[in-house]
């Protein structure tokens, strides 16, 4: 079987303020900022994750703040190989929103076989002690079970709890799903900034 070189697109979804950008920053840049800033300037970050001793290139897409008024658009979801669904364990509303985000993804990205699509559910901000917990682990696990057994982790971007594990898990499921779809051929795409054929030869 040929080596898989395809880039895996992973997107992070969830209500504004649940810590999507912080999770991404923690994973890729190993940093965390206490100050909340609605996402500006975050685009996508690339990172290799090691799955079974092989590097798998991940491209992780942040929402760029377009989730604030439910304005993400199909292009954002398109071609995603895995999704991290994030809620805030101290905010019940953010948990209740998960179902809508999952639905929105399935409708917009139109993945083949949505029931087995790699969603990983993250209950973030478990480090916060200043606010009471609003979503119990049991409640979240029940929801994940109902949705066909989605993997669930409780995380903290601030204290670096389960962040690496979350990305490794979604990447592993995406790789596995990719291998099961061997007959699927990717269209041959082109780089639009490629130089004319002649110049390329002279390089």
């Amino acid at each position: 079987m040929p080596e898989r070189t395809k880039l895996l697109k992973v997107i992070i979804l969830g209500e504004s303020g649940v810590g999507k950008t912080s999770i991404l920053e923690r994973y890729v840049r190993h940093s965390f900022s206490q100050q909340y800033k609605a996402t500006i300037g975050a685009d996508f970050l690339s990172m290799d994750v090691i799955i079974d001793d092989k590097p798998v290139p991940l491209q992780i897409w942040d929402t760029a703040g377009q989730e604030r008024y439910q304005s993400l658009g199909a292009a954002f979801y398109r071609g995603a190989d895995g999704v991290l669904l994030v809620y805030d364990v101290t905010d019940a509303r953010s948990f209740e929103g998960l179902d809508a985000w999952r639905q929105e993804f399935i409708v917009s990205a139109n993945p083949r076989d949505p029931d087995t699509f790699p969603f990983v559910v993250l209950g973030n901000k478990i480090d916060l002690i200043s606010r009471p917990r609003a979503v119990s682990q049991k409640k979240a696990q029940q929801w994940c079970l109902q949705k066909g057994g989605l993997t669930h982790f409780e995380t903290s971007a601030a204290d670096n709890i389960n962040i690496d594990l979350a990305f490794e898990t979604v990447a592993r499921s995406a790789v596995k799903r990719g291998e099961e779809e061997e007959e699927f051929i990717l269209p041959e795409t082109v780089e639009i900034n490629r130089k004319p054929a002649e110049e390329q030869c002279n390089c």
Binding site: G41, A42, D43, G65, R68, G73, A75, R78
Partner: peptide, 22 residues
């Protein structure tokens, strides 16, 4: 339809606020 969305994302990444269905 992917083209306008690509430029919209550019705008959002640089702080633009997006409101569909408005």
């Amino acid at each position: 339809g992917e083209l306008p969305q690509a430029f919209a994302r550019l705008s959002a990444v640089h702080g633009g606020t997006f409101m569909l269905n408005t």
